[in-house]
């Protein structure tokens, strides 16, 4: 790794963190979660940038690995500060949401209706599919990547907000399911 690459990656991480922080506060997260989501976004976005510029991975695949990394770290953070993991993992995905591809799809659709020549129409059909499929695949890659850790640690993932540790028999369900009583 050269020094320039490290600087580029750090810059990318910094701006991704600022972006995630700003987009996160729209949905009013708990204050202790804001910085963590910015940190996760920095890691995820810098990783995606590296994968796309220095390996042969394309945008959806790189997004998948970045989101998976965010998901793993968010499980760890959730365990530490007792929040559901999605409270920080969702905001940290926001800088990677393919918003520009999404609205370019719609813009191409709008232009297609007024296109006169077949050449332009062909070009626009390609644009529509290119942008539309990219946004679809990136969205799915992001969500599958970030929720894969949740499925891997299924039981733990829903207990992150639990303050108490479950202790033995005392706290077992008093009311079992009484199927016979029906």
């Amino acid at each position: 790794m050269t020094r320039e690459l490290i600087y580029t990656l750090l810059g990318d991480a910094f701006f991704a963190a600022v972006a995630a922080l700003g987009f996160a506060v729209i949905s009013n997260p708990p204050k202790r979660a804001i910085l963590i989501s910015a940190l996760l976004a920095a890691v995820g976005h810098a990783l995606r940038f590296y994968l796309m510029t220095h390996t042969s991975l394309n945008l959806p695949t790189a997004s998948f690995f970045a989101a998976f990394t965010i998901g793993m770290f968010s499980m760890l953070a959730a365990k530490l500060i007792h929040c559901p993991a999605e409270i920080f993992s969702f905001p940290s995905l926001l800088p990677m949401i393919p918003g520009m591809y999404a609205y370019k799809t719609i813009l191409s659709l709008l232009r297609f209706m007024e296109a006169k020549t077949p050449q332009l129409q062909q070009q626009l059909v390609v644009d529509i599919f290119q942008n539309g499929l990219t946004s679809l695949f990136v969205m799915f890659a992001l969500v599958i990547g970030v929720s894969l850790p949740l499925f891997l640690f299924h039981k733990q993932s829903f207990m992150m907000t639990r303050l108490l540790k479950p202790v033995g028999k005392v706290r077992q369900r008093k009311w079992g399911r009484h199927k016979d009583a029906r």
Partner: peptide
């Protein structure tokens, strides 16, 4: 949000 979108522009 304003800062965030500016940072996003940079990205």
């Amino acid at each position: 949000v304003s800062l965030a979108n500016a940072a996003f522009c940079r990205l």
